[in-house]
């Protein structure tokens, strides 16, 4: 090959040199990336291996080692599921309505605050904003007192089925109310990007405020619904604080409370606790998978 410059090196040599440089860079990059993956996945991995080991296996092997056939068992999953079963059902019963309601009311409120014109909007918006920053701990006592005064179980005494579940209803209402501000803010930022001319066109086409919401705004906010549903579901599902304060009867224990029950008083059975943690986390993962595509759209603002 002919030399292309004064140094006497051929083009081929220089390409090879360049490639070597590039390769070193890449190798370092991938090494770092693999290291990070390992770092983040190791607790999950340890949890997963532990959940498939017997108590003896857990004591005799390192948590990161996979279970050998001798120590392998699915018993921890069966035991954990047996304890969590009731909590899972109770959680689904209050988390689903609380999530949907707070997203829906948040969407209503945001629509009213962006696309309808009336006096005093700013004042209302400020109250919503303040709601986002209200710490859970600060409302615990007033919240307990409020529900004692309301006495939901007493009010529902005519229908024993509901009265027995009063704790869960209280949780539903509390979480809905607590979720509305953040949902409103999320929807509001999204609705501000929706064209005003489109809303005006619908008005001139004869649609009233509710018609515009139902036929124009609601269908266009599906990506934002995915965002709020995932966010709210995870928040409400993982909450333990409100449940501790509001749920009194054992039959109404939610999943986070049941998970807490797995903690033995004498011996720590880590394998059962790990299996329980995975079971309790499963629904939030399913929600991510189901709404993931819409979620990505909502976050990037594409529609």
């Amino acid at each position: 090959m002919a030399t292309a410059d004064g140094t006497g090196r051929s083009v081929g040599d220089r390409i090879a040199e360049h490639r070597a440089e590039l390769d070193t860079q890449r190798v370092v990059l991938y090494a770092v990336l693999v290291g990070l993956v390992g770092f983040y996945l190791s607790p999950l991995w340890a949890g997963l291996t532990t959940a498939f080991k017997s108590q003896a296996g857990f004591i005799n092997t390192s948590p990161l080692e996979p279970p050998t056939p001798a120590w392998f068992t699915v018993e921890p999953w069966e035991l954990a599921f047996a304890t969590l079963q009731g909590g899972l059902v109770n959680s689904v019963m209050f988390v689903v309505p609380a999530t949907i309601l707070s997203a829906l009311f948040g969407s209503f409120a945001a629509y009213g605050l962006t696309k309808l014109s009336w006096r005093g909007q700013v004042g209302i918006l400020v109250i919503f904003l303040a709601g986002v920053f209200l710490p859970y701990q600060s409302v615990l006592v007033p919240l307990r007192q409020f529900w004692s005064i309301v006495d939901l179980a007493g009010l529902l005494a005519f229908a024993p089925v509901l009265a027995n579940r009063a704790d869960l209803l209280e949780l539903t209402i509390t979480h809905t109310a607590y979720g509305i501000p953040i949902c409103t803010i999320l929807f509001r930022s999204y609705y501000k990007t929706l064209g005003d001319e489109m809303i005006e066109a619908a008005k001139i086409d004869g649609a009233n405020a509710f018609g515009i919401y139902k036929r124009i705004v609601l269908p266009l906010s599906l990506p934002m619904f995915a965002v709020t549903l995932i966010y709210q579901f995870t928040q409400v599902w993982n909450d333990l604080l409100f449940a501790l304060v509001l749920v009194t009867s054992r039959s109404n224990y939610v999943v986070t409370q049941s998970l807490n029950e797995l903690q033995g008083s004498m011996a720590q059975e880590y394998n059962i606790q790990m299996a329980g943690a995975f079971i309790a986390a499963l629904p939030t993962i399913i929600i991510y998978i189901v709404f993931g595509r819409q979620f990505a759209k909502g976050i990037t603002g594409a529609s």
């Binding site: 064209g195 001319e197 066109a201 619908a202």
Partner: peptide, 16 residues
């Protein structure tokens, strides 16, 4: 606007 029996074409077209 709903009751005025008018139709309007917008600069941005404002299609749904």
């Amino acid at each position: 606007a709903q009751q005025r029996d008018i139709a309007m074409v917008f600069q941005s077209y404002a299609l749904y």
